[in-house]
């Protein structure tokens, strides 16, 4: 074991970790924006609303993220003329865009399911009581359902964030130099497989614990009235 290799390459690894964090945050934020309406559509009784939401969730939860990445990145390459006509090729040309798109759509589907479950789990009694008080539908959603659903969804959502962060390691297959991509490159030069992967694993572990810690703190705050 040669740990000087790790020390020499730590700045590069940290650079990779920065891209990992960047992609994670970006995908999470856009994914969340997608997830909330999809969760509501999924609960709707109108087939024009729930069917597309159902199809989207089914596809993105039912296929491996790696395949989604390949489809979006190499698949878009096959439709270059069409995408150029639409003026979208400039975006799809970039591995960064394709990576974030795949991760966003993937986490959007999972998060939508988490929220749907949480909304369904809000006790019917709470809603009835609100109705009895004369609240309208929107007011009930805003004051009763949403706060309760967020509290219920929070721990599961924290899980999803951790999963997504780790799933970003897959973007290295479409040439992005995230933490895993950089580690692979260093290893191809130094052959220090164990040293570099151990350090890489430790960095992922550190990021995961930072996320878990943050979510715990927020969870405590969300439930402070129950303590």
């Amino acid at each position: 074991m040669e740990f000087s290799v790790v020390w020499d390459n730590l700045p590069k690894l940290l650079q990779g970790a920065q891209l990992t964090l960047e992609i994670t945050l970006l995908s999470l934020m856009i994914g969340l924006v997608i997830a909330v309406p999809v969760a509501l559509m999924r609960r709707s009784k109108n087939p024009l609303l729930w069917m597309p939401a159902y199809g989207y969730i089914l596809y993105f939860r039912g296929t491996p993220l790696l395949i989604q990445l390949f489809l979006i990145y190499y698949g878009s390459g096959q439709f270059r003329p069409e995408l150029s006509d639409l003026g979208l090729w400039g975006l799809f040309r970039e591995a960064y865009f394709c990576g974030v798109l795949a991760l966003t759509l993937n986490t959007g589907a999972y998060t939508a399911e988490i929220f749907r479950g949480a909304i369904q789990a809000v006790p019917a009694g709470d809603v009835e009581a609100a109705k009895a008080c004369g609240m309208g539908r929107i007011l009930i959603f805003r004051r009763i359902i949403l706060p309760k659903a967020i509290r219920l969804a929070w721990p599961m959502y924290g899980n999803e964030v951790v999963f997504l962060m780790q799933a970003t390691s897959l973007v290295s297959v479409i040439t992005l130099l995230d933490l895993t991509g950089i580690a692979g490159r260093i290893i191809s030069k130094t052959f220090a497989v164990y040293e570099i992967y151990i350090m890489t694993a430790l960095l992922y572990l550190a990021i995961t614990y930072a996320i878990v810690f943050l979510f715990k703190r927020i969870e405590k705050r969300l439930n402070r009235h129950l303590a």
């Binding site: 190499y74 878009s76 390459g77 096959q78 270059r80 040439t175």
Partner: peptide
């Protein structure tokens, strides 16, 4: 193969 694909798609 992946490099070739990206050559064909102009990346």
């Amino acid at each position: 193969d992946e490099a070739n694909l990206d050559m064909l798609s102009g990346r």
